[in-house]
Design a protein around this nucleic acid. Structure first.
Ligand SMILES: NC(=O)c1ccc[n+]([C@@H]2O[C@H](COP(=O)([O-])OP(=O)(O)OC[C@H]3O[C@@H](n4cnc5c(N)ncnc54)[C@H](O)[C@@H]3O)[C@@H](O)[C@H]2O)c1
Ligand SMILES: NC(=O)c1ccc[n+]([C@@H]2O[C@H](COP(=O)([O-])OP(=O)(O)OC[C@H]3O[C@@H](n4cnc5c(N)ncnc54)[C@H](O)[C@@H]3O)[C@@H](O)[C@H]2O)c1
Lengths: 211, 211
DNA sequence: GTCACGTTGTGATACTATTAACAGTAATCA
DNA sequence: TGATTACTGTTAATAGTATCACAACGTGAC
């Protein structure tokens, strides 16, 4: 399976989401312009993405939805699911746990870690919190592949080091700190403050419409 | 002032952050490769970004830090600050309020809105929660320019419509729904689930290093 | 059948972003 | 002083991404 461009992966995730959530109206088919409308992208972008995904439609009926969903699943997901751990059970960490709990997602948070004695051994949204010290061996024993970092900025790099030591190959980082990891470990930054400052910058030069 | 590329704006935000947080060691100067190391980008990327920002350094001393920070502020921030409102005081919304409260940021959350009677009129992290119905006129009266959407997906588009009606020109959206807004309104998507699924996809094909 | 229509698949093209290459310059030192 | 060094500023080259334009195709109308 060839490598699919990063931006295409992002959109495939959105396509899957909007297809899964739409009322299964009539036929099991969808045209590129319909999918484009739901995902707020152009129709040609959809066709190009599905081409990258190696998927073909019919000029008369469009794309077969179930088959498309199956194909996207096969590209995006690991066949036997993926285990993740959370590092830092604070405001963001708890919000995330409560959000992820319950749903039968392919990505499952199997443990959380913190260094605050008041949190250790508690169970939050069905997920037990363990001592940070035990992260490397416990994560490795569980076969964890993904780490989510939600600790304060100054602790983020150490958390990343512990995760890499545990053998994770993907990190989702909420701390506003650029991480340094060995090659082969994927880091995805979710920088909320940066996003806010960015939108403020571009909003600044826009003119508000009068009532 | 000419338009600065989107990616450059993102990095200017990071440069400002790492410069502000570093221990003011010795001189008030910094070389491109030092800044690059702190921001985890290449040195040439730093030089190009500062060029886009219209800033010059000296070949012998590098860039004057205070002057650079001032220049970045002038580019990124509105001179008289910017007011924002939060829509949806749930898990994410509360985390955000507690995070933003107190600090003397240029972006200030002046009001929150919800449609849950149990939350209306409460004060959370110093921010009062109002009835969703009052959003357009109250936000307009306050001179709000930015809206943060943290309501469930199905309610996100309606929230965006209300914000646009209130005259905001920038929206930070946490709901996993692509928004449709009029031209001139900047939307920044913070799609946490997409980020998680994306990192899982790329982590999947990486090989974990053995102990 | 065949014509018109609306759609897909994709080469070509344009745009955005990153990286390489190097000329220009100030400081240092033999 | 002239050679050396380490940096900046910028043009050129490359990579990544999005869009345009259109050939190819299946379907239904007639
Ligand atoms: N809350 C927000 O809205 C928000 C917004 C933007 C960025 N962030 C970033 O997200 C991160 C978490 O934010 P938060 O609001 O949840 O913070 P928080 O203070 O509520 O939670 C941090 C948690 O990490 C734990 N922790 C601290 N050091 C640790 C260590 N060395 N090992 C393990 N656990 C440790 C703490 O005990 C605490 O439970 C921060 O980096 C913050 O900058 C948060
Ligand atoms: N919590 C997470 O970790 C997380 C992760 C990924 C995405 N998200 C997204 O962020 C959004 C918020 O998530 P959450 O966990 O905070 O949800 P939540 O259910 O905790 O909070 C939603 C809040 O919005 C309010 N609300 C509902 N409808 C409203 C309306 N029409 N007008 C005004 N207020 C309304 C509710 O009263 C509630 O206070 C959701 O779209 C969710 O998909 C959250």
């Amino acid at each position: 399976m060839q490598r699919i461009p990063s931006k295409t992966v992002e959109r495939l995730i959105v396509y899957r989401r909007v297809l899964a959530s739409r009322v299964e109206g009539r036929s099991g088919h969808v045209y590129s312009h319909e999918l484009a409308g739901m995902a707020r992208v152009s129709a040609v972008q959809v066709r190009r993405d599905l081409m990258e995904a190696g998927f073909s439609g019919s000029p008369s009926r469009g794309y077969e939805v179930d088959e498309l969903l199956g194909r996207i699943d096969r590209i995006l997901d690991a066949p036997d699911g993926m285990k993740a751990v959370l590092v830092g059970v604070g405001n963001i960490g708890r919000a995330l746990l409560s959000f992820l709990a319950g749903r039968g997602l392919k990505i499952e948070v199997v443990a959380a870690f913190d260094n605050d004695a008041a949190k250790i051994d508690r169970v939050i949204s069905g997920c037990r919190v363990y001592d940070m010290q035990t992260l490397p061996e416990r994560s490795r024993a569980l076969g964890v592949r993904i780490g989510v970092i939600a600790v304060p900025g100054p602790q983020a790099q150490a958390a990343a080091d512990a995760l890499v030591e545990a053998g994770v190959t993907g990190i989702l980082n909420f701390a506003p700190v650029p991480l340094l990891v060995r090659a082969g470990v994927q880091v995805e930054q979710v920088d909320i403050m940066r996003a806010l400052e960015k939108v403020a910058h571009f909003a600044k030069q826009e003119k508000a419409r009068e009532v």
